[in-house]
Nucleic acid binder design. Structure first.
Lengths: 212, 212
DNA sequence: GTCGCTCCGTTACGGATTTCACAAAGGTGA
DNA sequence: TCACCTTTGTGAAATCCGTAACGGAGCGAC
């Protein structure tokens, strides 16, 4: 019935939404797929096709109402509500994530932090309580959480992922440098700047001698 | 002649390399596409196909020599040398990046940091000197840098990207929440955990009422 | 040496995704 | 109202990518 929507399309929608929010701040009220596409390095046809999976949001001859389309996208993506997030791992990376101010304003609220280091347990980080990792399962049973952020060393990550999934979490943002194994109905996104770097070097290695 | 290699393939190679390095640490000397594929949630055929773009590295009936293939991949990707990186932006995020220990061991050496806040300029962060952003262009003219990391606010990011590209940098790791505009021969990778979150919510919004 | 099993490299196929191109619709101005 | 310009939504075509399948090579056992 609901014709399957390609994941690549879903991944682009937040990019569109972000651009629309920026346009709205600039005071733009209407935007065409052409203009939006130039801003995002995407072809106008792709934008129109992506949107057409979900409905007809534009006006021929005019374009899209910026705020209207933004609201639609937010609704489609489920961004019209708050999401409860937990963070596992409070090493260097975990601390940076805990103190990162970018999630909260977008509706992603870190409601609990877990770490296995007794020195951290009990502290407050960015006004969030740090629990012992051992309590992860019991905590999640009592406090529903939607999304888990994994920021533990690679060797511990699969176990953490398993525990999150077993506790019912179906979305995981993974910062550990490994590929987590999860059931098909669990969404995973990996953040790994090193991998990103390592794929770019392929393209610049050819011509760039850089230093002697 | 050198038959164009799809970017998706290039993006997977570092993942393979990472897995091979892990296998090597486990003492494995040989691995089949089957085994590697299970570890990475990739079909064996895809691994073989990807590798076949670059040569014949396996032995029929045996598989791939772990260290041998790893060395090959590192060579293909240009990871068999050090890369000089500069970081622009020393806010919260920039500081976390500067202190992140994951780049150095992979051969990505941050050789300079730039920030526009006079309070930061002149400091040492993780043993790297912090320069005034105004010096960016002159610094790069004298000290070749291969890769730029952008960690400035979105509204300043395009300008920073332009300056980096004008200075000859052809690879950019962008942490700013915007889509940079660059010439076709410049590689860009965007790191945006919020976008990652926002695409996952689409999949979990349906069935998960979470809190009442 | 032969059998049997494993597993690579490659080609062919099919599915997924992107791009093209056009009919139809909204808007403007005379 | 009509002519003209813009831009959408969408089927069809083209391209890109992943998977299946298979011939043949390596290895071990007997």
């Amino acid at each position: 019935m609901t014709l399957e929507i390609p994941e690549v399309v879903i991944n682009r929608l937040p990019v569109y939404a972000r651009a629309l929010a920026a346009l709205a701040l600039d005071g733009e009220t209407v935007v065409s797929s052409q203009t939006l596409g130039e801003r995002l390095d995407v072809t106008p046809a792709q934008i129109r096709k992506d949107l057409s999976y979900f409905g007809r949001f534009g006006k021929q001859g005019r374009g899209y109402n910026v705020l209207g389309l933004l609201a639609k996208l937010r609704e489609i993506l489920g961004l019209d509500r708050k999401w409860r997030v937990c963070l596992v791992g409070l090493g260097r990376l975990g601390q940076a994530i805990a103190e990162y101010g970018g999630f909260e304003p977008q509706g992603f609220q870190i409601v609990a932090i877990f770490d296995s280091d007794p020195a951290s347990v009990g502290k407050l980080v960015n006004a969030v309580h740090v629990h012992d990792s051992a309590e992860l399962d019991s905590f999640l049973r009592q406090n529903p959480v939607d999304i888990g952020i994994v920021a533990v060393p690679a060797h511990a990550a699969q176990q953490v992922v398993d525990r999150l999934v077993n506790a019912g979490i179906r979305a995981i943002l993974n910062y550990a440098p490994m590929t987590p194994h999860v059931a098909r109905d669990v969404a995973v996104r990996n953040i790994d700047p090193v991998l990103a770097m390592q794929s770019m070097t392929f393209y610049i290695k050819k011509a760039e001698p850089s230093g002697k």
